[in-house]
């Protein structure tokens, strides 16, 4: 939380003509709610793609966002409601996401499989868990500290510090990216 607040207070984006304050929390809110449905519906809960049409956008910059709002048909209508400041805030949120390695894990056919970006010990990661079955699923990876239950076809995101960079989570087969 403190890290997030610091980022909110200190984040500065250098522009050609001036330094502009950005609000990462506002960028996150817009990511979830812009246009009434948010970027998340096309890009996953944390820019991970989530198997949707929009794909992975963690770390996408302001230029990429502006280009997509200009040329990508499903996104074009959003360009009318996102101000320049909104766009800065969203791109700052996406940059913030990219600071954390992403681990995705999907439970299907009785097993967890996933992918992991390179992780160092002590690093904060985003762990996206998806239950691809039609029944609720209890998840008790030790790293979570406390178990959680994913609803049928549900997704949850755990953000926390990984101490063991081998990501040796019981029952999870990971592909290293």
């Amino acid at each position: 939380m403190m890290r997030r607040t610091l980022l909110l207070c200190l984040a500065l984006v250098s522009m050609a003509s001036a330094d502009v304050w950005v609000d990462i929390s506002e960028g996150e809110r817009l990511y979830r709610e812009a246009g009434g449905y948010g970027c998340a519906v096309c890009h996953g809960q944390v820019g991970d793609g989530g198997g949707q049409a929009g794909g992975y956008i963690r770390g996408a910059g302001l230029d990429q966002l502006n280009e997509s709002l200009l040329t990508n048909a499903p996104m074009q209508p959003l360009s009318t409601v996102l101000s320049e400041q909104d766009r800065l805030n969203i791109s700052a949120y996406l940059a913030d996401l990219a600071e954390r390695p992403l681990i995705t894990a999907r439970f299907e056919n009785g097993q967890w499989v996933g992918q992991a970006e390179p992780v160092s010990a002590g690093q904060t990661v985003d762990l996206v868990l998806y239950n691809a079955t039609f029944e609720p699923l209890a998840v008790d990876f030790p790293v979570l500290k406390q178990p959680l239950t994913l609803p049928a076809l549900g997704t949850d995101v755990w953000t926390g510090v990984i101490q063991d960079p081998t990501l040796d989570l019981p029952g999870l087969t990971l592909e290293r990216l």
Binding site: G35, Y37, A73, P74, M75, Q76, P77, L78
Partner: peptide, 8 residues
């Protein structure tokens, strides 16, 4: 029911 900004 949709958002006015939803093209798809």
């Amino acid at each position: 029911y949709k958002s006015p900004t939803c093209g798809c």
